[in-house]
């Protein structure tokens, strides 16, 4: 079985996002970028499936400008077999991403697609569900455990009240939650090997899908910071402040 995994290049999760001075977007120039953490988990899961003999090929896909290649090289260094880079300078909305991925699924014919549950830049949490919808496939979002059994994926999902178990007809789309696994670090020899793994570059226009934006960005701003608080010296002082100053207990 072939597994298609996706990865997005995003602002490093440990770097605080700053709005550009002209208010047109978030500053991504000269800041540290990284692979979306949920996508690392998705790739790790695919690799573990291949190691367990459940899959024989992992194709990593990303959509973005030239530097997206670095993110795909990371996926290859972790263990993906080859990469597809859909090249565009534009920001593609989740619906457009799903349409691009549908086109690649039709040409690659994977038995399973694994994605991150959300990208930590836009925080939309949409593309996986949208891809499943466009393909008419089952979707397993926020998964924390996956067992493949023939044509069925038995999954555990993280939901608001706890955990939910579903049996999904394959092929299907899964999106990873934090507890699915702990992704490996790429070793130096594997980073070297990844440079020779195949990477297919596809200009987005050649796919013939409509990725025109449906939303107009009106503004971006930073929320007002919280006013500075005070340090208290003891539990008694804390309880006094909560009772008499904040009046919350």
């Amino acid at each position: 079985m072939k597994i298609l995994v996706t990865c997005k290049r995003v602002l490093d999760p440990y770097v605080k996002a700053r709005v550009k001075a002209d208010g047109t977007g978030v500053n991504l120039d000269n800041v540290k970028m990284a692979m979306n953490p949920f996508d690392e988990i998705a790739i790790e899961e695919a690799i573990r499936m291949r190691e367990a003999g459940k899959a024989d090929e992992i194709v990593a896909v990303s959509i973005g400008a030239a530097k997206t290649e670095e993110t795909l090289r990371t996926a290859l260094a972790m263990g993906a077999d080859r990469a597809v880079h859909v090249v565009t300078e534009d920001d593609i909305e989740p619906l457009g991403v799903a349409k691009v991925l549908k086109s690649l699924v039709e040409s690659e014919q994977p038995g399973l697609v694994i994605m991150g549950k959300q990208a930590i830049d836009g925080d939309s949490n949409q593309a996986g569900q949208m891809l499943a919808a466009l393909l008419g496939w089952a979707q397993g979002t926020n998964v924390s455990n996956v067992e493949l059994d023939g044509d069925t994926a038995n999954i555990t999902r993280e939901i608001d009240g706890g955990l939910e178990r579903l049996a999904l007809k394959m092929p299907c789309v899964l999106t990873s939650d934090l507890r699915l696994n702990e992704p490996r670090y790429a070793s130096l020899p594997n980073i070297m090997k990844a440079k020779k793994k195949p990477m297919d570059k596809k200009p987005i226009d050649e796919l013939g899908v409509d990725t025109a934006p449906r939303q107009t960005l009106v503004s971006v701003s930073e929320p007002p910071p919280r006013a500075a608080g005070v340090k208290v010296a003891s539990v008694d002082e804390l309880v006094d402040k909560l009772k008499n100053e904040a009046q919350v207990i």
Binding site: L11, K16, D121, D123, T216, S219, E222
Partner: peptide, 14 residues
């Protein structure tokens, strides 16, 4: 909110 709530975006849906 986007970027973990560090940025607020206003968008118009077409």
């Amino acid at each position: 909110p986007i970027y973990a709530g560090n940025v607020l975006s206003v968008i118009k849906s077409n």
